[in-house]
Simulated assay, not measured.
Amino acid sequence: MIYIPPSVDLKPLLEGASRDFIHAMMTNPTIEPELLAGLLANTVNLEPEAWWNVCASGIMNPRLKHTIKADTFDEQVQAWDHEKPIGAVWDLFLTAPATPKWASALSNVGSIPFLLVLPDRFYPDMKTEEGREDWGQTHGRRNAAYRELFMKAVQEKWVGPEGVGNEGRLGNFVWVRRGFAEAYVRSIFGHDERIKFATHADPAFRIGYYLAADVRPEWPIEDYIERDGMEFVEAVAMNDSLYLRMNCDIQRRLKAVVREQTKNFDHVITSMKRWRERMVAKDPELYGDTPTEEMLEHCRRADELAARRERMAAPMEAAKPVKKGWFR
């Protein structure tokens, strides 16, 4: 683990270091979480350029891409320490200046768990019994309220001068909002919280949804294609869950859409093929572009049930008159 003694003055060290040195240090997964969090929060008062260099590399540290499960109190303490730099990354959305350069750095947050550090002003007085009791009853609502405020701040702050919808699909501000939406959708469990990104007015938020949401056979992909076109296709092609075998029909329909395009989108077909092959290598029973035997059996049963219902709904033939003496 990278350990730097407290006696070392990090400010002159990092401000005088090369870009390669900073990148190697900040992306090292063995760096202490307390040190990484402090540098992201600029507790050493770095000059703006050095702080940006530190954050641009620190955001790409692989230790930020996962959380730690805890079964004991000691493991929970370790998990809290591990999450400190993750929270520091999300604090940057509020503390960093909203410039294209910072937007470019923050656009890499899509695979980082969305874990916010609740500010002190959202806590009751935890020193009193009443405050602790209040926290026990309201902590869920307090965290939800802060998430809403945070999302609103992102929508208002990280927007280019052209305004939402006019920035161009490759603009830095589009990518930072897209990264935020991807991380949010990937981390939030509630369906209602997720689905509001699918219909969001901001195209960047919708793309983040396509990248991170769980693709299901009932997805209205025709609606998504009509609204966002190939941006939807290119985004969902990078979603692992698309390649579940239960989504084989969606895979087929997406490839058909790409082939119908007048422009050259062959790279999307190639990308989907490679992505699917990578997922199949992980679990060939779960991933692929052909249905499972269980799916086929389900379809057969559904067809039989539909046919039975159709026969039952058909008008019955009039009963033929019984001949006299039939029972004699």
Rank of each mutant, 00 (worst) to 15 (best):
E83G: 05
P124L: 09
P100L: 02
K69Y: 15
S104R: 14
N172R: 11
L149T: 04
V164T: 09
T199G: 02
K69F: 14
R177T: 04
F180W: 08
E226R: 13
E304I: 06
A302C: 00
L296S: 07
Y123G: 00
I225D: 04
N45F: 15
R19C: 01
A306I: 08
E222A: 12
V185H: 03
G165P: 04
K69Q: 15
A313F: 08
P321A: 11
F265E: 15
R274G: 00
C248N: 15
A302P: 02
K127F: 00
A105L: 05
V77Q: 13
M230A: 13
A70K: 15
M230W: 10
P321L: 06
T95V: 00
P6G: 08
A201C: 06
D192L: 10
I207S: 08
L92S: 04
A144D: 10
G87E: 05
W219C: 00
L64Q: 10
D214R: 11
S107N: 00
S18N: 11
L39C: 07
E15D: 09
P12K: 14
R300A: 13
L92R: 06
M1A: 10
E285W: 02
F189S: 13
A213S: 05
I68C: 05
V185P: 02
D223N: 12
M1S: 10
D20G: 08
R253N: 10
V268G: 04
L92T: 07
K196M: 15
P62C: 13
E49M: 14
R142H: 03
L211Q: 10
P315F: 02
E133N: 12
L118K: 02
M272Q: 05
L296M: 12
A153I: 05
H298S: 15
G38R: 13
P5R: 12
W90G: 06
H82I: 06
A201S: 10
I188L: 10
V77N: 14
V258D: 12
V268E: 03
V89Y: 11
G160Q: 03
G131M: 06
K152H: 01
D223Q: 12
H23A: 13
P29W: 05
A183Q: 00
R147M: 14
Q251P: 06
A17V: 08
I86V: 09
G171Y: 04
G208D: 05
L170W: 04
F197G: 06
P217Y: 07
F122H: 12
W102Y: 02
R178S: 04
A183C: 07
P203D: 07
K263V: 11
Q76E: 15
K65Y: 12
P119C: 02
G140L: 15
A181S: 11
L149N: 03
A103C: 02
P85R: 12
R274Y: 05
